[in-house]
Amino acid sequence: MNPDLMTRTLLYLDGVSVSFDGFRALNNLSFTILPGEMRAIIGPNGAGKTTMMDVVTGKTRPDAGHVIFDGKVDLTKQDEAAIASLGIGRKFQKPTVFESHTVWDNLDLAIEGARDPASTLFHMEGEERDRIEEILGIVRLRERRYELAGALSHGQKQWLEIGMLLAQNPKLLLVDEPVAGMTDAETAETADLLREIARTHSVVVVEHDMTFVRDLGVKVTVLHEGSVLAEGSLDHVSADPRVVEVYLGR
C-alpha cells in the first residue's frame, strides 16, 4: 500500500483478488482513479471487468486486497447501500430500470436525498421537481416521463439509467457497457453525454466498442485474466504487442 497515493486518489485498488470455485476472476488487481478523472477499461471476455465493478460496489467481497474510496473508506467493509450512499453510482451491463415504475418515478427514486424508511415515508413530492425535469431534458426522456420504464426501447432504458446515475449525483460513476445494443448515432450521443458528465464527476467506463472508447478520448486500462495488462492512451495500448496478442489470440 502506498498511503501517499491512496489519500490523493478517489478510488484506490491494491492487490485485489477474487476467485470463484478455483477460478481467479481478479488476480492481484491494482489501479487508481484520480478525482475528476474519466477512465475507460477494456479487456476481452473474462478479463474481470464486471467482477471489478462488483467488488467496488460491494456485490462481491474480495478474498484479498484493499479497495479505498476517497482516500479513507475501505469499501470491502461496506455493503451495497452504504457504498451507494458514499457516492458511487453504477450502471449495469444489462439495463436495469424499475420497469413497473414510470420514468419520472425511476428518477425520483434515484435522486439524491435521505434513503431511510422514515424519510421516504413522510417525503413530500415536489422538492426535487426541478432537478428531475432537468435530468429528463439531459437524457431526452421529457416526452415520456409518465410512461412505464418497461415500455422504453433498449437505448432509452440505457439513457434512463444514466439519468438515474446523474440524479444520484455520485462522486464516482461506474458505467458498464453503456452503448451495448445502440445504433451508431446513439453511441455518439452517449459519448457526448458521458464526456459532459465527466466534467463534474469521476467516471469509469467499461466498454468493448473501440470506436466509442476512441470517441471518449481518455486514458485506457487494459485488463487481462484479472489484472492490469497495460495502461495509457488508446493509441499507446493498441501498440502494445501483449494487448494485440490478447485481443487477436495466440
Binding site: T57, K59, D79, E80, A81, A84, S85, G89, R90, F92, T96, V97, F98, E99, S100, H101, D105, D108, L109, A110, R115, P117, T120, L121, H123, E125, M164, Q168
Partner: peptide, 20 residues
C-alpha cells in the same frame, strides 16, 4: 415515496440496493 421504494424492491431488489 416509501411505496415506490417497496415496488422497486419487488421488481429489482439488488438495483435498489445500488441506489443506496
Amino acid at each position: 415515496k416509501l411505496g415506490k421504494v417497496l415496488i422497486a424492491i419487488r421488481d429489482a431488489e439488488s438495483r435498489t440496493r445500488f441506489l443506496g
